[in-house]
């Protein structure tokens, strides 16, 4: 079993503190959901864990099986087993999806032990089929001209090809119609199990109808303010966030506000 531990994490962007002491522990074989209204720091958390260049960790720690993640370069974090499905994936001209994925897979293997082209194509084909993606997506330039839904599917394709220990999925459900949502959920559910932990960031309960989380956390003002089981998501769906704000005496849930 692997464990990702986030302790008292403070993160600033352009000198402004966004995360203000966040604590969270994830184990493999668990699926956590982080919910919260817009502007509460969810993407900041995801970006800080992965090492986005604009986010500065001012204090606190992130460790993966005891290893200091914050000391690692971005590629080393990925090699260590972290994966982030980004809210806004980059587009890269001239680099085909297939070449990119093969480089990513080979980056985890020794020189001279690269994945065979045949094996790679077989895996890619079968996973694309599973995600109901057009085969020509493999030869298109990475995310260039992809629709919102295609980009999200492509993030899940990468997840399935790379098989990380922990995946953070930042609003993987946003902009998806119901069919695409089902396909994306199918992909995530296939990953579910021993050796895989997942942090699903969303502000809708909708996705959680297809992927039942083991733990649900609510973020406000750059912290986790409430945690519970799947029933917490249902309660949020039925009643919104106001009851939590009342319970905790929060007036404005976004960051930059103090309770």
């Amino acid at each position: 079993m692997s464990t990702l531990v986030i302790q008292d994490l403070h993160v600033a962007i352009d000198g402004k503190e966004i995360l203000k002491g966040l604590n969270l522990t994830l184990n493999t074989n668990e699926i956590h959901a982080i919910m919260g209204p817009n502007g509460t720091g969810k993407s900041t958390l995801a970006s800080a864990i992965m090492g986005h260049p604009k986010y500065e960790v001012t204090s606190g720690s992130v460790t993966l099986d005891g290893e200091d993640v914050l000391e690692m370069e971005v590629d080393e974090r990925a090699q260590a087993g972290l994966f982030l499905a980004m809210q806004y994936p980059s587009e890269i001209t001239g680099v085909t999806n297939a070449d990119f994925l093969r480089s990513a897979i080979n980056s985890r293997r020794e020189e001279g032990d690269e994945i065979s082209i045949m094996k790679f194509i077989r895996e890619l084909d079968s996973k694309m089929e599973y995600l109901e993606m057009d085969q020509d997506m493999a030869q298109r330039y990475l995310n260039e001209g992809f629709s919102g839904g295609e980009k999200k599917r492509n993030e899940i394709l990468q997840l399935m090809m790379l098989q990380p220990k922990f995946a953070i999925l930042d609003e993987i459900d946003s902009g998806l119609d119901i069919d695409a949502l089902k396909v994306v959920s199918k992909g995530i559910n296939q990953m579910r199990g021993e050796g895989f932990g997942c942090l699903i960031i969303t502000h809708y309960q909708r996705l959680l109808n297809y992927i039942t989380p083991d733990h649900v956390h609510v973020m406000m003002q750059g912290r986790v303010v409430k945690s519970g089981g799947p029933e917490l998501a249902h309660k949020l769906e039925a009643q919104g966030y106001d009851w939590i704000k009342e319970e905790l005496g929060i007036e404005d849930e976004t960051v930059g506000q103090e309770a």
């Binding site: 590629d75 990925a78 990119f100 480089s103 990513a104």
Partner: peptide, 10 residues
């Protein structure tokens, strides 16, 4: 950043 987040070196 995007490419590196998939394990690809700088």
């Amino acid at each position: 950043y995007y490419l590196m987040s998939r394990g690809i070196s700088k």
